[in-house]
Simulated assay, not measured.
Amino acid sequence: MIKARVTVTLKNGVLDPQGKAIEGALDALGFNGVGSVRQGKVFDLELDTADKAQAEIEINAMCEKLLANTVIENYQVEII
């Protein structure tokens, strides 16, 4: 079994209203000095295979087709 973590974040230059809202809320709660917040998402996957190379190919296909909107998001795959 292969376990992987996929982290999806907005590309630089893409507006992040949720990140801005979190940044404002942190400031309102007294957490001063937070310069910028960017929001993202994390997917933990388990694949029923022992072939690491094949798992990476499949996970990248999952990201391209469903997990990430590659027009505005980047993704990173980590085998864990």
Score class of each variant (00 low, 15 high):
78 E>F: 00
76 Q>D: 09
71 V>C: 12
23 E>G: 04
48 D>T: 15
35 G>L: 11
5 R>E: 15
63 C>R: 10
72 I>M: 14
55 A>V: 01
30 G>P: 09
45 L>N: 04
53 A>G: 13
73 E>T: 00
75 Y>R: 00
24 G>M: 12
54 Q>C: 05
49 T>E: 14
50 A>S: 15
32 N>Q: 15
70 T>S: 07
21 A>T: 07
6 V>I: 11
38 R>C: 03
3 K>L: 07
52 K>M: 14
14 V>K: 03
62 M>V: 02
51 D>W: 10
64 E>V: 12
72 I>W: 15
69 N>M: 09
80 I>D: 11
25 A>K: 02
59 I>G: 00
49 T>W: 12
30 G>T: 03
67 L>D: 07
57 I>T: 15
56 E>G: 04
18 Q>R: 11
72 I>P: 06
58 E>K: 14
6 V>T: 03
38 R>N: 09
43 F>M: 02
8 V>G: 08
34 V>E: 01
62 M>A: 08
25 A>I: 00
34 V>Q: 05
1 M>W: 08
12 N>I: 08
17 P>Q: 01
45 L>Y: 09
36 S>E: 11
59 I>W: 00
30 G>F: 06
65 K>E: 11
68 A>Q: 03
68 A>E: 07
74 N>T: 01
75 Y>N: 01
66 L>G: 11
19 G>S: 01
74 N>M: 01
75 Y>F: 13
68 A>M: 09
33 G>S: 06
4 A>Q: 12
72 I>N: 14
41 K>R: 15
74 N>H: 10
25 A>C: 04
66 L>P: 03
53 A>S: 14
80 I>T: 13
3 K>A: 10
6 V>K: 04
10 L>I: 04
6 V>F: 01
12 N>R: 15
20 K>S: 10
78 E>D: 07
67 L>I: 14
28 A>W: 01
69 N>G: 02
38 R>S: 13
7 T>D: 09
66 L>S: 11
50 A>G: 15
50 A>E: 15
1 M>S: 10
22 I>L: 09
25 A>T: 00
35 G>A: 07
40 G>L: 07
67 L>N: 10
7 T>C: 03
32 N>D: 06
60 N>K: 13
64 E>F: 13
44 D>W: 00
60 N>C: 11
72 I>V: 15
3 K>P: 02
53 A>D: 15
20 K>W: 10
46 E>M: 06
13 G>H: 03
47 L>M: 11
53 A>I: 14
64 E>Q: 14
64 E>C: 01
54 Q>S: 15
61 A>F: 10
51 D>H: 09
47 L>R: 12
25 A>L: 07
15 L>I: 08
18 Q>G: 04
8 V>Y: 08
47 L>S: 10
11 K>A: 00
52 K>H: 11
5 R>P: 02
6 V>L: 07
8 V>K: 06
59 I>P: 00
1 M>I: 13
77 V>Q: 00
44 D>K: 05
79 I>D: 06
53 A>V: 14
27 D>F: 01
15 L>G: 08
32 N>I: 14
18 Q>K: 11
6 V>Y: 00
14 V>C: 03
67 L>Y: 10
39 Q>W: 10
